[in-house]
Structures are given as structure tokens and as C-alpha cells.
Simulated scan of single mutants.
Amino acid sequence: METATDFDKLGLHRGQVVQELGWDDDADENLRQQVMDTVDSDLIEDADDAVDVVWLWLRGDDGDVADGLVDAIRDLSDDGFVILLTPKVGRPGTVDPSDLSEGAATAGMVLTSTHNVSDDWQAHKVVRPKGSRR
């Protein structure tokens, strides 16, 4: 993603508290910096209170998508959402699209959109179904 406007499509904006999970050496540092610039804050690892967004890096060998999402929503506010980042098709660690939608459903969530956010990563916005939000 090149501009803060691109992050609007994902629902990121200034003042949000963003928890980052699944970071590893292959994470896109430029992308992380763009997120921090957009929300005007550092990403947090351990949350003391509910967070607005969980920024979850997930690769094919990291385990089940549903398990990753269940872990991600532990600290998520009732109206918060998850940005699930997976390697693009053809990159090491690619996650099958059917695993994404099935994993979201198993975790009780809905996959709403997918965006190319860097050369190697795509972002999937995952939300709670509207009826389950408070």
C-alpha cells in the first residue's frame, strides 16, 4: 500500500490501537511502518485493554487459520476487526484461499475483503458477523 488512503480501505485510521501478532523475520518492515504512521502509534504485542485492530501475520506453516483467528480475537474490542496478512500466491508460505474463508467461518468470523498491500503480502479484512457485534 502506498498511501494512508489505501489503509482507509482496510479501516485503519489515526488513533486506533493495533496489536501485532505473528511477526517474524519475513514480515514487511515498510508495511509495518506505514501502519504505525497511519494510526500514529506503535504496534503493541501484549494488550492491557481491548484493541481496535489485530494485525496478524500468518503463513501456511504457522498452523490452522481458524486457530490463528481465535487467538487474534482474544484482545479484540467488540467492534474491532482483524487484518490477516498472508504471503501472496507463489510466495513461500502461501495460504490457500479456501483455507482463509473456511478458517474465518470456523472462528465465527467473516472474510470481507482482500487487498494487495506489498510485493509479497496480501491483507484480508476479517470481522465478526454483524449480528454478533455489540
Rank of each mutant, 00 (worst) to 15 (best):
T5F: 04
D6N: 11
D6M: 10
D6S: 12
L10N: 10
L10K: 09
G11A: 11
L12Y: 09
L12E: 05
L12K: 08
V18M: 11
V18T: 03
Q19R: 07
L21E: 12
A27N: 04
D28F: 07
E29Y: 06
V39T: 13
D40F: 04
L43E: 10
E45A: 12
D48G: 15
V54R: 05
W55G: 02
L56T: 06
W57K: 00
L58M: 12
D61T: 14
D67E: 14
D67P: 00
A72E: 02
A72C: 09
I73G: 03
R74V: 10
S77E: 15
S77C: 06
F81Y: 15
L85R: 00
L85V: 10
P87F: 07
G90N: 06
T94M: 10
P97S: 09
S101A: 08
E102N: 13
E102R: 13
G103L: 05
A104F: 01
A104Q: 04
A105F: 06
A107W: 01
A107S: 06
S113R: 13
T114M: 13
N116S: 10
N116G: 13
V117P: 02
S118C: 08
Q122P: 00
Q122S: 12
A123M: 08
H124V: 01
H124A: 09
K125L: 04
V126S: 02
R128I: 00
S132D: 11
R133A: 08
R133K: 15
R134A: 11
